[in-house]
Design a binder for these strands. Sequence first.
DNA 1: TGAAATGTTGGGGCG
DNA 2: ACGCCCCAACATTTC
Length: 474
Amino acid sequence: MSTAIFWFRQDLRLQDNPALYAACHAGHDILPIYILDEENCDWPMGGASKVWLHHSLTHLNQKLGGRLQCFSGDAKAILKTLCNTHDIKHIYWNRCYEPWRIKRDSAIKTLCTEQNIACYSDNASLLWEPWQVSKQDGTAYKVFTPYYKKGCLYAEAPRKPLPAPKHLNLADLSPKNALTIDALSLCPTRSWGEEIITDWKIGEDHAHAKLSDFMDGGLTNYKDGRNFPNKANVSRLSPHLHFGEISPNQAWYAAAQASAPEQDVTCFKSELGWREFSYYLLYHFPELPHKNFQDKFDAFPWHDDQEYLSAWQKGQTGYPIIDAAMRELYQTGYMHNRPRMIVGSFLVKNLLYPWQAGEKWFWDCLFDADLASNSASWQWVAGSGADAAPYFRIFNPITQSEKFDPDGQYIKKYVPELKHVPASLIHKPWDMTISEQRMYNAVIGKDYPAPIIDVKETRERALAAYSSIKQVQD
DNA sequence: TGAAATGTTGGGGCG
DNA sequence: ACGCCCCAACATTTC
């Protein structure tokens, strides 16, 4: 029986894993490996992502009977050594789409071809491959709706989920330089790493439990309820999807078969569509993570003065909805989508920071930090992206708070200083009289910060900044 | 997947 | 009864 390497990457699961399925089906004994490759990587994983990865690998390793072999370093060198030492002629993996990984993986394929090693790659992460969707003229879509409706929905239906391989025969090999998961040093000694995971159950089995709970509950009324950060109408699957503990195909078909109203199902599927669109944009515009998609934004007068950045990061801006959201992010490794848009607008438009500053902070703090989604979404918020929110669409954090957290429950959950403040006053606590502030144990400037900026003034400043670039040719 | 400014309409108070 | 004003409530436009 020949041995094949199965290289786990962003597909930390056994079910619906096409390359793993193919390897087993071909009759190979499998040597399952994971490589932490920070040598080829120009976007090293953030702190939260590493913590998640640690636990996800642990879960996967348990499912593999403790036989997962971990390595750290240059993937090309590690694979070469493994193949040479153990006389392995087959490597299987599922594709990744980050520019650095595409570059690295194609170099590995070239090397393998030279060495007479067969490489098999498949698609485990996307419903539609980015190169299979294009306009009539062959160029890439830049607008979501036609991309999704004409490009995706008219194309072949996504692959139906595969079962786990029937026979997973693990090779009886113990490579010399293999490391334990602990030795990858993914978990900081800081207590932060311990605390942020308390809300989460990590790994393939828990991802499925969450999907199934969502299908039975939150999907009904998803279309409207998903806007309310204190409602259970979002799936919170994003970190599981990012690490491939569950596939978009599994989510897609689960929704399609769910008994929820059609508009909710359609809306959920289109959110998976936005994820696809982000990957599509990153594939066709590999500079998306650092360069304005719209060139005219290169001349935008950002204020990169660091003055307010740390107040935003720590949730000390004096705007309760912003502070609740930023603290949710830091404390739980996650932020609901609605407040992501609100805090994004606040950073980029009210504070005039370049979107890259927000991208970087989210990258470090989010469990679901994903190069494609994070870059595409920050550019969307900033107005510089593909099919972006127009720059002049500036969120008012007070209005948004009143609309989407009317009873202030989300605010109170993460901003305990305001827990005694009644809902009618919680969205703009600085309007409380001194006696109200004392009565509710929330003295502004003492118990809770005064607003660091005025939204009306900064809105006008942002519009003026925008008008300075709108004449510039694209 | 906004918000604010501006425009329009229609009911009620009032002389 | 009528015109006038006020001003919600809604619609449209602008950024």
